[in-house]
C-alpha cells in the first residue's frame, strides 16, 4: 500500500489491438448474440429468410410458368400430377404463382413501410428535437392525415399517380407515415429530456451527431415494432386494393390478389384459398415475432427493475 498519489493512467502495455478484439464486443455482435439467444425470434428469422429466398429464387424454384393458362386442367385439387398444389380457375399452377406472388407481396410491404418511414420519421425527428412551431405544424398535419379514411386516401393517391402496385403502396405508405411520425415524436420527446442528451450537448457535439448517436438508437425499438406490425397490415391492405383492381395488375399475382380470386371459387375448390392465406399468415407472424425479438435485443437493459 502506498501513501503517494499514483500518477494518472496505469498505462496497460498489452497490445491494444487484442484488447479491442477480446473485450470490446461491438454493438452489432452484441445485438446478434442477444437476438440469437431468443428461440422464437431465431425461428421466425429463419422462416422469414426462407420466405424471402423462395421469392428471390422463384424463377428457379417454380416448376411451371406462373402465368401460363391451361384450360383443360382448371381447378385441379392439390397433389395432381405436375401440379403439386393444384391449379386455379384458368389452369395456372398454384405453386408457381404462389412463389412469384411472394415477390410482389414482399416488395409491396417493403415499399409501403419504407415510404412510411421516410415520410414519417425524418420530419418527426426534427420536429420533436427542435420543437416549437415545427412541432406544432407537424402535429396538425398528421392529425389531418389521420382524419382521412385510409382507403380513400390510398385511392386518392392512385387517382393522382395512376394505377399500379407501386403507386398503391406509396398511397399506403402515406397512410402509415403519421403513425411513424407520432411514435417517433413521442420517443424523441422523452429521450430529449434525458441527461445524457444534455451531456452530449455540453460536450459540444453537433446536432446531427446528437440526433444520430444519442436519440435515434433509442427510437429503434419502438420503430421496429411499429414497422413489423405495419408490414403485415400492408400485405392485407394490398390484398384489398388488388381485390378492387387498384393494386397488382393481371396476369401478375400477389398473395392478396390470389386470396381474393380464390374466394370466388371457395365452393368448388376450397383448398385454393388456403395457400395464399397460409403464406400471408406465416410471413406476417414471423415478421411480428422477429420484430419483438429485435426490440428485446436492442432494448436497453436497466439496472432497476422496480416498475
Amino acid at each position: 500500500m502506498t501513501v503517494v498519489p499514483s500518477e494518472g493512467a496505469a498505462g496497460s502495455t498489452t497490445g491494444e489491438a487484442t484488447f479491442l478484439r477480446k473485450r470490446y464486443e461491438s454493438p452489432s455482435r452484441r445485438f446478434a448474440r442477444r437476438l440469437l439467444s431468443q428461440k422464437v425470434a431465431t425461428a421466425s428469422g429463419v422462416i422469414l429468410i426462407l420466405v424471402v429466398l423462395s421469392a428471390i429464387f422463384a424463377p428457379l424454384l417454380a416448376p411451371l410458368d406462373p402465368n401460363k393458362t391451361d384450360l383443360r386442367n382448371t381447378l385441379l385439387p392439390p397433389g395432381s400430377a405436375d401440379f403439386l398444389l393444384g391449379t386455379d380457375y384458368l389452369g395456372r399452377d398454384v405453386l408457381s404463382r404462389l412463389l412469384f406472388a411472394g415477390r410482389v407481396s414482399l416488395v409491396a410491404a417493403v415499399q409501403a413501410v419504407s415510404v412510411g418511414l421516410i415520410l414519417g420519421v425524418a420530419p418527426a425527428l426534427v420536429a420533436g428535437y427542435v420543437g416549437r412551431w415545427w412541432d406544432w405544424l407537424l402535429m396538425r398535419f398528421t392529425d389531418a392525415l389521420l382524419a382521412f379514411p385510409p382507403l380513400i386516401l390510398a385511392i386518392t393517391v392512385i387517382g393522382i399517380l395512376g394505377t399500379g402496385l407501386t403507386n398503391a403502396m406509396i398511397g399506403v405508405g402515406i397512410i402509415f407515415a403519421p403513425r411513424f411520425a407520432r411514435i417517433t415524436r413521442s420517443a424523441v420527446l422523452s429521450v430529449r429530456e434525458e441527461t445524457f442528451v444534455e451531456a452530449a450537448k455540453s460536450m459540444g457535439l453537433s446536432q446531427p451527431r446528437i440526433i444520430w448517436r444519442h436519440v435515434l438508437p433509442h427510437l429503434l425499438s419502438p420503430l421496429v415494432v411499429t414497422a413489423t406490425v405495419l408490414a403485415g397490415m400492408a400485405m392485407i391492405i394490398e390484398a384489398g386494393l388488388s381485390f378492387i383492381g387498384l393494386g397488382v395488375q393481371v396476369p401478375q399475382a400477389s398473395w392478396g390478389s390470389m386470396l381474393s380470386t380464390a374466394y370466388r371459387f371457395i365452393r368448388v375448390s376450397p383448398t385454393l384459398i388456403l395457400w395464399p392465406g397460409l403464406a400471408i399468415m406465416i410471413t406476417v407472424l414471423s415478421v411480428n415475432l422477429l420484430g419483438d425479438g429485435i426490440r428485446d435485443a436492442l432494448g436497453r437493459e436497466v439496472r432497476d427493475m422496480s416498475s
Binding site: P27, F196, E198, A199, S202, M203, G204, S206, H214, P217
Partner: peptide, 21 residues
Amino acid sequence: RPHRRNAQLVFQDPYSSLDPS
C-alpha cells in the same frame, strides 16, 4: 460549440447522464 470543449460537466446523476446504448 467550439468553446464547449473548454468546460466539461460531470453531472450529478451518473445513472441518467450516460447513454445506455
